[in-house]
Amino acid sequence: MNMPQNQQLKQAEAAEYKALVDQVNPKPTYIKNCVWAFVIGGLICMIGQIITNGLIKSGMELKAASSLTSVSLIFLAALFTGLGLYDELAKRAGAGTIVPITGFANAIVASAMEFKREGYIFGVGAKIFSVAGPTLVFGFVISVIIGLIKVITD
């Protein structure tokens, strides 16, 4: 009979401590973070638009142009990650560098580079998907579900 009471006491203590932690814990600099995310994210998309517009002007159709835009941005993100600059920007820009496709590329490149010293096959080759893997799994699953719904509803 003693145990539940002890547990209750412990829970109360933990809850009390949590309140203290919430009070002391520094808050993220919300406004600054949001401004950085908006501006950098916006700029990355704008660079994308510049590339797309250029490709369209050179006679490419929209769909191919946006596909090539993604590939170009992925290339740039891979380069900047390799040079060690992407994470410096991400420290400030947060979601501004995570949400664009460049963030996806950064996650892939960073995980691949990290495991170079564990070898090129089961180091780089396996760990390259450690962050991007879940993204692809969910992306593929949802696309198949949507496709199947389309098949059924037709």
Binding site: G82, D87, K91, N106, A110, E114, V131
Partner: peptide
């Protein structure tokens, strides 16, 4: 690399 993220992955560190 053992406890958190890949070194070059862009993440915003928590203030704490």
């Amino acid at each position: 690399r053992q406890f958190r993220f890949a070194i070059e992955q862009g993440v915003q560190r928590s203030p704490s």
